[in-house]
């Protein structure tokens, strides 16, 4: 009897909210088509995949390709590079938009605020290829940055050919690209904080700094935590595109990460099974990280994804 009720309730829910479900449909279809269906293909990590034999027709290979990766000469370096590049990127890149949002919130001149916002958003809309072209031009031996260094009497640095400079270039340019765009969500979170809290604080004699510290930051803490969880969940899946556009053989030492390695071996050398195994391993680590961070946050902060 109860069961029937639930069935009927779901049906009624569909009927009542049909337009809401309709709105959900494109996103749902996107995830099914591009994220769930392809999972079926992940099995080639366990097979000797040949295009001509197809996914189901290729022979099982067991854990051969995983072994190959774990015993690979570059296994440790790839893990280290990926974790370090991504970790440092979060360490420096994650707080940046929060700071910008807090600062913008204190700006009273609308004109100035809007100008800053527009200027900081812009790099986000530049195609990555072009953005990296700009970065390469700026960091050249006779590029702008080296001209400035030389002007102050410093030695010119070959930024893109020095392994020790790869991470700073990557992270700083990343902040330049994403700081404005990233701050939008925090600005909207700040806008959602009740004005009464600020008025009450003013009456109590709180300074602007105290207001920020005790009202604004706690007010957007939930947002920060959720975004941080998501970000850490992607720790290992650093996109290969930007690294690929900026690295070269001389900077492999710090720049070669799992995804670029997969690109070289999988796409360029067409070792599909091997590359799938590496990527699958990568995804498993990501999933584990996401669960761990989520659990920590749940215990400490009380806010979590699920």
């Amino acid at each position: 009897m109860r069961k029937k009720n639930i069935g009927r309730r779901i049906l009624r829910d569909f009927v009542f909210n049909k337009y809401n479900y309709l709105l959900l449909a494109p996103a749902l279809i996107y995830y099914i088509v591009f994220h769930y269906v392809p999972m079926y293909g992940a099995q080639i990590a366990f097979r000797d995949y040949y295009v001509t034999k197809g996914i189901l027709g290729s022979d099982w290979a067991g854990l051969k390709y995983f072994e190959q990766f774990f015993t690979s000469y570059y296994f440790e370096r790839l893990i280290t590079n990926t974790v370090l590049l991504s970790g440092l990127n979060i360490l420096w890149g994650f707080p940046a938009p929060i700071l910008l949002a807090l600062l913008l919130n204190e700006v009273r001149s609308q004109l100035f605020k809007k100008s800053v916002q527009t200027i900081t958003y812009l790099p986000h809309f530049i195609s990555l290829v072009v953005a990296c072209g700009i970065i390469i031009d700026f960091t050249k031996q006779n590029g702008l940055i080296n001209d400035i260094i030389a002007f102050f009497g410093g030695e010119r640095i070959l930024f893109l050919q020095s392994p020790e400079w790869f991470r700073p270039v990557y992270i700083i340019s990343g902040i330049w690209q994403e700081i404005g765009w990233g701050s939008i969500i925090y600005l909207s979170a700040i806008a959602g904080i009740s004005q009464e809290l600020y008025e009450a604080a003013k009456i109590d004699g709180a300074s602007r700094w105290k207001e920020t510290l005790h009202i604004t930051i706690p007010g957007i803490m939930e947002t920060i935590i959720i975004l941080l969880i998501l970000r850490v969940g992607k720790l290992m899946s650093l996109g290969y595109e930007k690294v690929l556009l900026l690295y070269n053989e001389t900077t492999y030492k710090t720049a070669d990460i799992i995804s670029t390695y997969v690109y070289r071996r999988g796409i360029q050398n067409a070792e599909y099974s091997f590359a799938s195994a590496v990527d699958l391993f990568n995804s498993v680590i990501n999933m584990a990280l996401l669960l761990i961070v989520n659990a920590i946050s749940k215990r400490v902060q009380g806010s979590s994804l699920f």
Binding site: Y74, E249, Y252, N269, A270, E271, F274
Partner: peptide
């Protein structure tokens, strides 16, 4: 192909 994959990376970066 499998063996030469890592060898290529190592050879090229060390040569440079």
């Amino acid at each position: 192909t499998m063996l030469m994959g890592d060898i290529q990376t190592y050879y090229q970066e060390t040569l440079n």
